[in-house]
Write a protein that binds this DNA or RNA. Structure first.
Lengths: 194, 194
DNA sequence: GTCAAATACTAGGACATCCTACTATTATTG
DNA sequence: CAATAATAGTAGGATGTCCTAGTATTTGAC
């Protein structure tokens, strides 16, 4: 969820594995900082003799949490449009395609999701009259998914909303944005994305 | 998802919304680079007049993809132990707790997941005899979740596997790891995580 | 040309996540 | 002290993701 469909709440994080913080009542002997759970988890990792893995654990955990935060924000923005992020992605893929139509398989490959996830998303998009299934003209195994006019309009409106409410205000500095894109680019290259 | 339980394949990404690349046959007029889909999506964003949002879109999309990659790797490592990442996180939270037991509510708060997700995870962990539910000694509304010996052993073994196979080899440079943790720390602070 | 292998899609099931109730218990307020 | 509000947990439902299996069609090999 990665699944799932986050509402406003985020997803799980190893990060939060820090021991319970004392309530900030009074003035406890320990520094009453609202400690960063990921930093705390790193401390736990080191305390258990896993120093070599603690930084990587923190990075992976940070990614998990960031995903949770952004997915929740995106889904919240898309909710009024009655589409999920998964379905929005399908719409945008079709929106950018020259003919406004793509085979199911192509959609799955581009979005890097399982075929059956595409079937699922297209089922719902079709039920909402945002796309149509058409027979592929030359390959009778394949099914084309065509963007309906309503789907095109929704794609534009939803994108405008996402741009305003999420993408132009990511909660990161300009440098942070660049660092993220560049560093994850490294990861994605290693994973064979491009 | 965020959901779901990724096997080896990743999750959706706006990134892949680039138009189909021409096959690299012959030597097409356009540079036949196996283009980075996220960079391509950025180009599309700009081409549609959404320049101000393209960088943020790329960052958010990168996070989504990174999550997908890491979640798939983590789940693959955990599969032999018959636990999901969500359940592993619960085990580790208990493992780090002083008494090896925590109320359901505390688990949800620490992992930042919905209460019902904790109920779900604990149901399965309990069925696998990895944890036990106990009545809270003073608050009869609450339920304590106690780490069973088998759960403690599994937590240690699974962590060893994750450390070896994922956390010490994240696919990022040391600098990349630090950039990720630091930059996402920014985001998390803004989201009120600490 | 025919048969095996690969490909495209769907069906059904397992998990995980969220949300909205609903119950039981504790805390708060008048 | 009683009534209301807040909290802890579960049940049931919707979505999304994956996987395996099964059907239809196309490609490739002999």
């Amino acid at each position: 969820m990665t699944g799932g469909r986050p509402g406003c709440d985020p997803a799980p994080t190893i990060a939060a594995m820090a021991p319970a913080r004392k309530p900030t009542t009074g003035q406890p002997p320990t520094p009453r900082l609202a400690s960063d759970p990921i930093t705390e988890a790193q401390r736990q990792w080191s305390a258990h003799g896993w120093e070599g893995a603690s930084d990587g654990m923190a990075a992976v955990t940070s990614i998990m949490r960031a995903h949770q935060i952004y997915l929740a924000r995106v889904e919240a923005v898309l909710r009024p449009f009655d589409v999920s992020f998964a379905r929005y992605e399908v719409l945008m893929l079709l929106y950018f395609s020259k003919r406004g139509a793509l085979p199911m398989r192509t959609i799955g490959s581009r979005l890097q999701v399982h075929q059956t996830s595409v079937t699922n998303a297209v089922d719902r998009l079709e039920a909402a009259r945002l796309v149509r299934r058409l027979p592929h003209p030359t390959d009778r195994r394949a099914t084309l998914v065509e963007l309906a006019p309503a789907g095109r309009g929704l794609a534009e409106q939803a994108t405008a909303a996402l741009n305003t409410e999420v993408f132009t205000n990511t909660g990161l500095s300009a440098r942070g944005v660049n660092d993220i894109v560049r560093t994850i680019g490294q990861l994605r290259r290693g994973a064979g994305d491009f």
